[in-house]
Amino acid sequence: MTSLFRFVVVMIAFFVTQPLFAAENVVNVYTWSEEIPHFVIAQFEKETGIKVNYSTFDSNEIMYAKLRANKNAGYDLVEPSSYFVERMQHQHMLLTLDKTKLLNAKNLDPAFLNRAYDPRNEYSIPFIWGITGIFLNKNYYNEQDAEQWKNLLDKKYANQLMFLDDSREVFSMALRMLGYSINDSNPEHIHQAYLKLKTLMPNVKLFNSEAIISILIDEDATVGMAWNGDLYKAHQENNKLQFVYPKDGFEIWVDNFVMLKTAPHPENAYKFLDFLMRPEIAKAVSMNIHYSTANLAARNLLPPEIKNNPALYPTQATLSHGEFQTDVGDQAHVLFEKYWEQLKMGG
């Protein structure tokens, strides 16, 4: 009996202990999936002797739930999207960054600094960004058919459209159709957006966030909503694909690095973050994942066919129609989720 008791104690201890690597020379990094290529991590480990424990997530919500469920998860650097930087800051989860340890921050693109979600970049460093816009396949539609989100309400798209499986993205689009900001948290406006989406539902063929590229390439869906980086990737296999910046406005998202207050290895985290902001490293990351870099020095190093590609680097005039995502608060989140359930259940 005593040995059984001891066994139970050991089992419980095993499940509740902190990560054992807390004292070692490591840095624990938690980013969007496939964001940092292995050769970049290997180079950092070789230069500094610091081991990188790299884990990934595929939605902000999962990352946030994990960090909240276990306050001592042991992560140092995390990469939330802009509106989650704000949300995490409201929860006092973020460390104020010591800029003297981030000398490569001078390489960053000023267009992505001091935005509303972190007005003085005290907590976050922008890394990768993109646009949520309209895609269409020129074998089936003309660009004039879908210049604005509003055009997607047309009956000719019955059971044709693909949308991201993400309530916030889809509501942002509906709010733009109505002329409201994507960051509008007025319950009345969100209700109007819901009614708008209800009229759009007969046109929806599918919601998807995981297999977008293969769906675009194989023409499983030929028009709808997509991220520009995915479209760029798919375009290399199917040149009929076209990305459209909706004239009635669109969302600009930015993935940022933040440090947690509970970070066990802040010094190593600074070293890794500064390393990622080196122009040649940021360029390698951007070329590997095919998304736009928020590092101006890195962007200048990119091959001309990428840095001049309007799908990845739109002009300032185009960008002026875009809005940066900010946190809309828990009340709006609950509304989005409630209406999202109703929308999918046809209620």
Binding site: V204, N208, E341, K344, M345
Partner: peptide, 10 residues
């Protein structure tokens, strides 16, 4: 239902 139905219902 998510993968084959296009996540249209919950």
């Amino acid at each position: 239902p998510d993968l084959l139905g296009g996540s249209k219902s919950i």
